[in-house]
Amino acid sequence: MTIFTKLLALENLTGNEKHLVDYIFSEPEKIVRSRPNEIAEGAFVSLATLYRLINKLGLSGVGELKIELLTGLKSQKANEEEVEIDYDYPIIESDSSFQIMQNLSTIYRNTVDETMNIADPEELVVIGKKMLEAETIDVYISSSNLFFAQNFKFQMQEIGILVNVPEEAYVQELSAANSNEKHLAIVVSFGGRGKTTGEVLRILNDNKVEIILITSTQDHPLSSYGDHKLYLASEENHYDKISSFATRLSLLYIFDTLYAVYFNQCYKENIDFKLQNYKKINQELK
């Protein structure tokens, strides 16, 4: 939280303190260069008012106020001068550790915004109902993305819904072959390149299983299989990159959204179920 956010959050300020806050917002750079009495004079308040406001901010003195202002100003400047970032190579060899952190922060913010902006609100409503109606939900996913499916499985299990996440290629195909119209399949394929995923989709389609396809916005041969589609942020190259920073976050965001949409349809029942189970698990042995 920057100093500017802290100032906005302050409550029960006196008239002079509000006037001082306005002065800080209007002249932050000047305050960094000023002595305490100069700050008070510039805001037309007493030194006592200045130190009272500093105490309300939880700071130790004017020096700490200046440090917070400098940090806040640097953050604002970075946002204003933010340039388009390379999603595949967001860091370069000369970047400092903190610059790396800032670059990733930019990617994360942009990724969440993009994932939300390309989502279809009406499709989310339909998917939520389909999940609620399904007797079995199966998630087909590969590689390191399995961890996100396993987390979704855990979230659903906490509210009493068992989700099937087959891992090995043969088990995925076997699970698809065992599926029927009472199943709902969630299939994740960014670019439609996986041989197993293609085979799984073919089998699911033959068995008339409704499919939610989580994929990129780029067209590929497997796109036609999805009865419902949710799109991942698609700025990253599938291969030529340092890591799947954006895709990974986008997928987590979508899975969390699916869980939250499902949860929200029976909100009170799910809250009660979770709390009751928590009490059972944590009940002390007598």
Rank of each mutant, 00 (worst) to 15 (best):
Asn205Gly: 02
Ile203Arg: 13
Glu210Phe: 09
Tyr225Gly: 06
Gly198Trp: 01
Asp219Tyr: 12
Leu201Tyr: 01
Asp219Ile: 10
Ile211Thr: 06
Gln218Asp: 14
Asn205Met: 02
Arg202Leu: 13
Thr217Phe: 03
His220Arg: 02
Ser223Thr: 11
His220Leu: 07
Asp206Lys: 15
Ser223Pro: 07
Gly226Trp: 00
Leu204Lys: 09
Thr215Ala: 04
Pro221Gly: 08
Leu222Asp: 05
Asp219His: 04
Thr217Gln: 12
Thr215Gln: 02
Thr215Asn: 03
Ser223Arg: 04
His220Lys: 03
Leu213Phe: 13
Asn207Ala: 05
Lys208His: 15
Ser224Gly: 11
Tyr225Pro: 01
Ser224Trp: 03
Ile214Tyr: 01
Ile212Val: 14
Pro221Leu: 06
Gly226Leu: 03
Thr215Val: 09
Leu213Thr: 06
Ile212Thr: 11
Lys208Thr: 09
Leu222Pro: 04
Asp206Ser: 13
Leu204Ile: 05
Val200Pro: 09
Lys208Cys: 13
Arg202Gln: 15
Leu222Tyr: 08
Leu201Arg: 00
Val200Cys: 08
Val209Cys: 03
His220Ile: 10
Asp206Phe: 07
Ser224Gln: 13
Val200Gln: 08
Ile203Trp: 09
Gly226Met: 02
Thr217His: 05
Asn207Phe: 05
Asp206Cys: 09
Asn207Ser: 04
Asp219Met: 09
Asp227Pro: 10
Leu222Trp: 00
Glu210Met: 11
Asn205Thr: 14
Asp227Tyr: 04
His220Tyr: 06
Ile214Met: 03
Thr215Tyr: 01
Asn207Asp: 03
Ser216Thr: 10
Leu204Trp: 00
Asp219Gly: 02
Leu222Thr: 13
Asn205Ile: 00
Ser223Val: 06
Ser223Gly: 12
Gly226Pro: 09
Glu199Lys: 15
Val209Phe: 07
Ile203Tyr: 02
Ser216Cys: 11
Ile214Lys: 06
Ile212Gly: 10
Ile211Tyr: 04
His220Thr: 05
Glu210Arg: 14
Asn207Thr: 04
Thr215Lys: 01
